[in-house]
């Protein structure tokens, strides 16, 4: 084609600008109509969760007398009851986490090395309680742990105890019930990260003369760390905010933050003290999740030497 003819068919600049303008407008229109689709969901979560949380944050700075400041937060240090509740909450969460890891790690490990024929039913045994309502399981533990429950009857039938043990309406019952709820939350991420470990590594270790125990601690354990940390922190965080199990299996004697928040609503004329506790719980949760994110990123397999 001649250069002159090409110049004649070239699209004028004004036309190009118009096209670009129309395209931009269409894109903006498309984006807006897409954004609009998210509004109903955003409204539900925004109005019922985000807005009240922000409001709680602001109310936490108004103390019982209506003064602005850190009065509610100062209560945490001056009132012994708060110190006790915090210590109690951390103690229970820590106990639940440690016991869950000790019980859950072997299950996840065995599930990851056994053939599907065995791992499948084992997975089912983990999932059935996971799907069962926490309330129903708490009720079951009441039946099992009560004075004339399964455990006490069995132990006294075996002549191992003379008087029934107090297993429920106290810290013991609370921890048992919480461990039962938390273990699946540990096993599932742990199992996923163990399945991703290359089995050849363990075989290679055996080939170069490493004992099974040594190979486990030097290779398998470090490689399973991301899943272990993710699961551990998740159950610790969930334990901090627990309400139902301590309320029922603790028999009113085991006090944790979540119950105190609920009690504070009834106890004080203003929202302040409950709001400050809520903010504290939220901050602790966020902090733990943030630490977990950093640790998991740092420990992800490609960085393990």
């Amino acid at each position: 084609m001649e250069p002159a003819a090409l110049a004649e068919t070239a699209i004028p600049q004004a036309q190009l600008d118009r096209n670009r303008h129309t395209l931009n407008r269409e894109r903006r229109h498309e984006n807006w109509s897409m954004l609009r689709l998210t509004i109903p969901a955003l409204l539900i979560v925004g109005v019922l969760m985000v807005a009240p949380l922000l409001w709680l944050l602001s109310m936490s700075f108004v103390d019982i007398e209506g003064n602005y400041g850190l009065g509610n937060y100062r209560l945490f240090f001056s009132e012994p009851v708060y110190v006790e509740i915090f210590l109690n909450t951390f103690k229970i969460a820590l106990m639940v986490t440690v016991i869950s890891v000790l019980m859950g790690y072997p299950v996840a490990y065995l599930m990851s090395i056994l053939p599907p024929k065995w791992a499948g039913p084992m997975m089912l045994a983990v999932l059935v309680p996971f799907w069962t309502s926490g309330l129903v399981r708490t009720f079951s533990w009441l039946i099992i742990l009560q004075r004339k429950g399964l455990i006490n009857e069995t132990l006294s039938w075996l002549n191992l105890i003379e008087r029934p043990l107090t297993l429920v309406h106290n810290m013991t019952g609370t921890v048992i019930g919480m461990v039962h709820i938390m273990i699946p939350f540990l096993i599932l991420p742990l199992y996923a990260s163990m399945k991703a470990i290359d089995g050849n590594l363990m075989r290679a270790a055996a080939n170069v003369g490493s004992s099974p125990t040594h190979a486990f601690f030097r290779i398998f354990l470090p490689l399973s760390m991301p899943g272990l940390i993710a699961g551990t922190i998740m159950i610790f965080v969930m334990s901090l905010g627990f309400y139902i199990t301590p309320a029922l299996l603790g028999g009113g004697r085991v006090k944790m933050i979540a119950q105190r928040i609920e009690e504070s609503l009834a106890l004080y004329p203003t929202w302040g003290p409950a709001a400050a506790l809520a903010v504290l719980l939220l901050l602790m949760t966020a902090l733990c999740l943030w630490i977990s994110l950093i640790l998991v990123r740092r420990l992800s397999p490609e960085r393990v030497r």
Binding site: L53, L56, L289
Partner: peptide, 15 residues
């Protein structure tokens, strides 16, 4: 998912 259930409940109750 990340917010403790008791806090969501208190918030909903407040609204």
């Amino acid at each position: 998912l990340a917010v403790p259930a008791i806090l969501i409940a208190v918030g909903v109750f407040f609204i």
